[in-house]
Write a protein that binds this DNA or RNA. Sequence first.
RNA 1: GCGCCCGUAGCUCAGUCCGGAUAGAGCGUUAGCCUCCGGAGCUAAAGGUCGCGCGUUCGAAUCGCGCCGGGCGCACCA
Length: 678
Amino acid sequence: MHAPTLPELRAGLEAAIREAVRALHGAALERVTLERPPRTELGDLASPVAFDLAKPLKKAPRSIAAEIAGALHLPPGVREARVEGGGYLNFRFARGPFVAGLLGPPATQAPRPGKIVVEHTNINPNKAAHIGHLRNAVLGDVLVRALRFLGHGVEVQNYLDDTGVQVADVVAGLLHLGGVTTLETARTAIREAALPTGASHPKGFAYLCWDLYAEIGRTYASRPDTQSWRAEVLHAIEQGGNETARIAAAVSEAVSSAHLATMGRLGIAYDLLPRESDILRKRFWTRAFDMLQKSGAVIHETEGKHAGCWVLRLSESEEFAGMEEPDKILVRSNGTVTYTAKDIAYQLWKFGLLGIDFDYERFEPDWSSGAVEASEIPAAVRDHPIWRTAHSRPSDGAPSFGRADRVYNVIDVRQSYPQKVVREGLRVLGFRAEAERSEHFSYEIVALSPKAARELALRFGEEYRLSPEDEKKPFVEMSGRKGLGVKADDLVEILLERSRQEVAARREGETGAAEQDARAIAIGALRYFLLKFGRNKVIAFDFDEAVNFEGDTGPYLQYSLVRVENIFRKLEERGLPTEPSAEGLAEADWEEDLWSLLLDAASTSEVTERAVASLEPSTLARHAFTLAQAFNQFYHRHPIASEPDEQTRNRRLAVARIFRREMSRLLELLGIPEPGRM
RNA sequence: GCGCCCGUAGCUCAGUCCGGAUAGAGCGUUAGCCUCCGGAGCUAAAGGUCGCGCGUUCGAAUCGCGCCGGGCGCACCA
């Protein structure tokens, strides 16, 4: 007999309650709430439905609940319905069959139709990544993992703005401040992470660019005449076919390669790197512009402050109502195209609505960036093929990219307005369904706590000291332009040092496995730290908090899994069974705490579903923590290997087995690696 | 000015979508627990006008309105 899963039990109860209410009162319920009661003694699922009916029926909730309970046909797997409290309907499951179901193979998620594109990371390829970029990438990565878990086909895109102002500024810095003159000297600078003028950085070229970017910013500020450098470089990049453009291409390739290594060490992989330069080359905007002009939504202003510009009319749209200046300029009066305009073209392409496509080529990043060793990249990432849009000579065998049915753009909350404009761009073209399925996955920024900012000043010197106004703020925004921020690989390094110490303190002699485990712990701590906060919460970054390995942290989750493995090892050593026997389990009398743990363990797919629906990966992180907590309590209260009673041991063994599988799946969803030992 | 987000224990946060049983966790503090599957753990204590007010409701941290405090957005920047 098929043992019902938690979602099936839920659905069965909902239907049964509806049916009972219809039979009794002829009323159709709008919705049936089913929730976990505050204590397991009260039951496994509860419904306050009688409270909703009290008013229209003019009866006491308790008597309504009693009537419903009497009329209910309990679905398979539910043992009893009881009225408790002021009128709750509390349901208890048949525990034996439920556990038997959990011990069987996990319910596989049927593949779901349609293709989902998730765009995340999108770091300007002009300097090392900071912890704000990490939040983006980790949130996006967990969304991808969750979608795949639920059976969706997902394509991960990481957009590279390789022709923008930020790259231009670093190139200007290389040329005017760094002594770089030719592509050859630029290549040397990239390889050696050292400039002809002498500046160098032990952690590689991206780090060197971080400093150079801050320096060019200071130069622009102190000598305004130098600002022409930027325009010159931008112009040269746009023209193409010159040394400056080739240097810019080499810079963005080297830096984005470093970013891939940084994300790679966190277990984050990408399918496609679309490049801005190819959007220009392929004239995506010209095509989109055509479509927009024909639709009549984009018009040429001949007077007013926008005279000479092409603007997207938003004044009629509800979403933009009340804005002083609701129209969005897409083409400037000098004929250049805004970023948002290009983004509309790109979004159209993602849905396969543009009618033209990129060319593609394989890209092999250099996994050792100076801050990252190639050996740190997990095999799953290193073996994952990366494609990028090609300038020329496309490779064979490229898969079909784009043509999505749904698109998630992972980008911070400050981009809400331009993201709305992009969506509106699709809508005015008549692509209403696609506009609906263009989702902005927004999240709050990572800022620095005043304390963290002070620590940075201590480490990197006076130029990082906060201004008096900033000192008064609750947190300070990171600024690439000012060079103020915690670099991603620096934080990983700090975490690694800490986890190596902890690992070393717990074992002697070993080297290889210990380093592997230390890495797993550092990455687990980092990913969990970035995931545990709700996405609308500003993370005011604090070093002590991020480096903590105790309590509500990644290592706590990892430790619970290592512990359960230890149990199985110990059982094997003692020649005891490591598989629970089905015999006796069905009739077993399950202690409340064991049972409660099993209910938690059974809810992985429900929680994942909710995390995706609400775009809130923190619910997954929290659920994993709750489960680990329940297990750690179980571990202390209910020893297995030393338990003499066979039935009791068997019952606990079943719990351990189920926990191991579900926790392992949760860590996979969160991208948190499993250490061998801790 | 308009719009969005945040305000819950000393600190950092869950819980708010969809009102429901005694508002939870981690850190920190205090007091305990290793002849036991390794203590990155467990047990317990102390700690709360859920920013404020009004309203809706049998019932409000949760919904509505109005305030207060903080952050962000509203470019011919990206």
